[in-house]
Design a protein around this nucleic acid. Structure first.
Lengths: 238, 238
DNA sequence: GAGTGGTCTAGACCACCCT
DNA sequence: GGGTGGTCTAGACCACTCC
């Protein structure tokens, strides 16, 4: 019995994938080139067409190949790298850094939204939205301010929620089914209120995210602005 | 001949996916629950197990299901939303906003890297790295500063490249095969040099990205810091 | 019109991992 | 040990799109 330290199952979809990737890396197929058909590749690799299909689809999902029904498979010219990262649930993010998590409720009101929020959420005219401010802390140090608007005509349950002990972030994750939305990152100078809440003395650059969450009917459920304490870095693996 | 406006192919991969998603949304299967086996679902939906497999894998890739070889398929408790976005090639990013792109070369030197860069790139001791600074403009307005270090022991071709007319960003995209790395976002106060290059008068908060690119052997090819003009927002669809 | 990828099927074997 | 997902196969039909 011989020990196979690095036996490659010649016909797994992953092996096809890596072989194709190698050929792309080595410019065996140049950007813009047309690859052989799935059938041809299957013959060459000695596997079923389905297997080749799976491999090529994976690579295409990564944005390196472009496939069309009759046009065949083509090497993308400017391979725009795609990064996929998970939107952190704040508590988990803090605890994953081995820091202790705590939460401080700041305020909760029903308000007529300012113009900027109306533009983002497009609520029914005249309605008041739930406006919650809270602070998340790591090791008792201010970590991020959560500034959230919720449309209670769309999520009536939220009207009865009490955010003194549970953060809106947590509550929504647990109570609202997944859905679409969008996300934006930016940098802003700390306002006076932010400086006070985050306990910083000098004017600082703060990393800021704005996230809008929609329900399945494309109505905006909630908009949240997260303003992080100075020095925060959002890190993403590729 | 009848016109089928909305015929659903009862046994398509996608139809299984949406049905499962519906059941998740409606809490038919609760978080933590175990789903029926693929075989059972296949029987229920009247399709092959392969089809169910494909659907469940897609959902699991989205982070809503967890699958284990013997443990079955389970509904994830805290579905961490995954966002995938493409890392912009600067020129394309600007032109996609219907702005005119232009490029201004700032400097190009071989330098001993400072400690911060050494920590990120871990180059061979004592070597000098290629250090390039450049500015990308949109409609003749400063848009982003590119501040890049390249290890020419790993990418010898870069040593001969001339970045007066071609940005390093562009050059690398076209000449270096894709690979891994990491990415970080942060906010920083504009330095004097940045204020001058970006033509801003008052101290501002600047959105900053740092990206490290590795080759297949896990050596760091290049580190780039992009400092965007005030007001920049990086937007991501979910 | 015809070639290519997209997908479904039925069956099979395997790898993993819980009990 | 045995059940579950992971994957491969061979064949088939379909849908899209280029020519």
């Amino acid at each position: 019995m011989r020990s196979n330290t690095s036996r490659l199952p010649t016909n797994s979809w992953q092996s096809v994938e890596t072989e194709v990737l190698n050929r792309l890396r080595s410019n065996y197929w140049m950007p813009g080139d047309l690859l052989p058909t799935e059938a041809e590749l299957a013959a060459e690799f000695g596997c079923a067409r389905t297997t080749v299909n799976r491999a090529l689809q994976a690579i295409a999902d990564d944005g390196l190949l472009e496939r069309k029904r009759k046009g065949g498979t083509r090497v993308v010219v400017h391979p725009t790298r795609k990064a996929t990262f998970s939107i952190p649930v704040i508590r988990q993010e803090i605890e994953s850094k081995e820091l202790s998590y705590s939460y401080r409720f700041l305020s909760q009101k029903r308000e007529h939204p300012p113009k900027t929020i109306r533009a983002l959420m497009n609520p029914a005219p005249g309605v008041r939205l739930l406006h919650v401010k809270a602070l998340h802390l790591a090791n008792e140090q201010p970590y991020v301010i959560e500034n959230r608007w919720i449309d209670t005509t769309i999520v009536p349950e939220a009207a009865d929620a009490n955010f003194r002990n549970t953060s809106p972030n947590q509550w929504l994750v647990e109570n609202i089914p997944f859905n679409g939305g969008d996300l934006a990152f930016s940098a802003s100078i700390a306002s006076d209120e932010e400086m006070s809440v985050l306990e910083i003395k000098e004017s600082s650059a703060l990393f800021t995210t704005e996230r809008r969450t929609r329900d399945s009917g494309n109505s905006t459920i909630t908009v949240v602005r997260l303003v992080y304490a100075p020095g925060y870095r959002m890190e993403i693996g590729l």
